[in-house]
Every structure is written in C-alpha cells, then in structure tokens.
C-alpha cells in the first residue's frame, strides 16, 4: 500500500476511536492489505494519538493462544502500543462510555528494568530484564464493526487494545512459576473461568521474547520502564454497567476492576 492509503486507514481508525464508533473491516475495503501494511496503519493511528497529547507507555501482545491463532489463521502473536490515555489504576471505575464494544481479559503484565533489544532475545533474557510482574486486566475493544476482524484488521486497529488496569501486587519472576501459575477469573463474585500462564505461547516470557525480537526487526524501541501486557490467560468476558471482575494469579495476587456506564454498542 502507498503512504497515502496507509494514512487514510490510520486516520479512519483514529477518527473511529475518538468518536466511539466502528468502521467496516479494512479487508472488505482493501482485500490486499499485508501484515506489514497493517502495522504501518497501526503506527499512523498511534502517531495521531501521540500528536493529540498521549505518550507511549508500553506494548500489548495479542493473539497468543492457540485457539485464537487457529481462529485468525495465524501462527504467531501480534502487538499493539499502550498509551498514557489507556491507563487505569486498580480501584478506579472504568467508564464504559469511553469504549465501543469492550471485553475483558485477565493477563500477566511485565515491567522492564532494562532495555530489551532484539533480535536474539530469549525467554531467559526476558526474566533477567524484568523488574516485576503484576496481574492485570486488559479491556480489549474494536473499532471494527461487530468484531469482524481478521489478523490485518486487528493489527491495524492497534491489536484491538482498549484500556488496561495493573494490579498492585508486584512479583519477582525469579520467585514465581509464571508458566504454571494458575489464573482464576471471577465475575460479580462467581467463578467465571480458569487458566494458566502456559496458555500464552507456552509461557508469558516466550511471548515477551517474541515481542522483543519482532520490535527489534522493525526498529521500534523496547525500553526499561515500559509495561508489557503478555497476552490473555482467560476467556474474553463482555462487561456491562455494574460488573466487577477479579483475577487472581496463583502465588502472586489479584487485580480487581469495576465498570460503569454504557459502551457505544
């Protein structure tokens, strides 16, 4: 795709995000979009948000489980950028009015104490470079109508990122089995579903290593202090006004989040 097309679709996604509405799947409009094109569209969308005053605070990794990869017909994860406007603190109530068609995912987040420069990064480097891990919720959202996404659509749409909340309990990955740590998700006081770290690329550290290597090839920096959401360990949970979710990572701790208001769809 030429630069004009890239800008067009990046701007269309930015406008849809700002106006809380959806657009038709990009692949319906432009059947030949490649994955590389999709990342360029994502970059344009994020540049628009940065130009409007946000800063880049981290990355999210998506499409990390085998069922989702099978569904989208891909063999690797994808990634999006986390911006300052996406951050909620634990205890905040998430205003669904700022979102379009949100769903929650329970994850493990990494915070780096050293830069990770790929290619050549292994899971062992990830543990070494990690300051701490925390349980977190990512609230994914799609600017694409009815979540009718293929891999190019979700990549262009910043990996369907909405907002996120980090828990307050920090863990050291040298003292915690992040691969076998259980994930228990409760919705409104009832057990919703369970999972385990291994659901993410065999281990969340593998997903972060993948990201470091992918960013390295694209020349995108991956810096100390950045937050990395490593990928969903739970089922996707649609949320409405009044819902409360708690995720607990075995051996680590919990993250609790409440929702109010109405999303656009």
């Amino acid at each position: 795709m030429n630069e004009e097309q890239i800008q067009h679709y990046g701007d269309a996604l930015y406008d849809a995000w700002r106006e809380r509405r959806t657009i038709a799947p990009l692949l319906e409009q432009e059947p030949d979009i490649t994955l590389a094109d999709a990342y360029r569209i994502q970059l344009r969308y994020i540049e628009r948000r940065v130009a409007a005053g946000e800063t880049i605070v981290g990355k999210k990794i998506g499409v990390t489980s085998k069922p989702v990869q099978d569904f989208l017909g891909v063999f690797q994860p994808d990634f999006g950028q986390l911006t300052s406007g996406m951050v909620y603190q634990e205890g905040d109530v998430i205003d669904l009015g700022t979102l379009i068609q949100p769903k929650a995912e329970a994850e493990l987040a990494f915070v780096l104490k050293e830069d990770l420069q790929g290619p050549g990064v292994t899971a062992m480097d990830v543990i070494r470079a990690t300051d701490y891990v925390v349980p977190c919720f990512e609230i994914v959202d799609s600017r694409i109508t009815d979540w009718k996404i293929r891999i190019q659509d979700t990549v262009a749409d910043n990996a369907s990122c909405g907002v996120y909340v980090l828990g307050k309990t920090k863990g050291d990955p040298r003292k915690l089995d992040i691969t076998l740590a259980g994930m228990v998700l409760e919705k409104n006081g009832e057990l919703h579903s369970t999972g385990v770290g291994a659901a993410v690329q065999g281990s969340p550290a593998n997903a972060v290593a993948w990201l470091a290597n992918t960013l390295g090839e694209l020349g995108i920096p991956f810096k100390a202090g950045e937050v990395i959401l490593s990928g969903s360990q739970s089922a996707l949970v649609p949320v409405v006004d009044g819902d409360e979710l708690v995720c607990t990572v075995g051996g680590l701790g919990s993250c609790r989040v409440k929702f109010s208001g109405r999303s656009a769809v």
């Binding site: 076998l180 740590a181 259980g182 999972g195 770290g197 291994a198 075995g250």
Partner: peptide
Amino acid sequence: GVVLEKNGEIVAMGA
C-alpha cells in the same frame, strides 16, 4: 495452575 501435555503438546489447561 495445571498443564496437561500429550506427546509433548499442551492439550488442556486450567486452575
């Protein structure tokens, strides 16, 4: 957390 592997491949997971 629990991971069940069959012939080296993860086939079921949970907590």
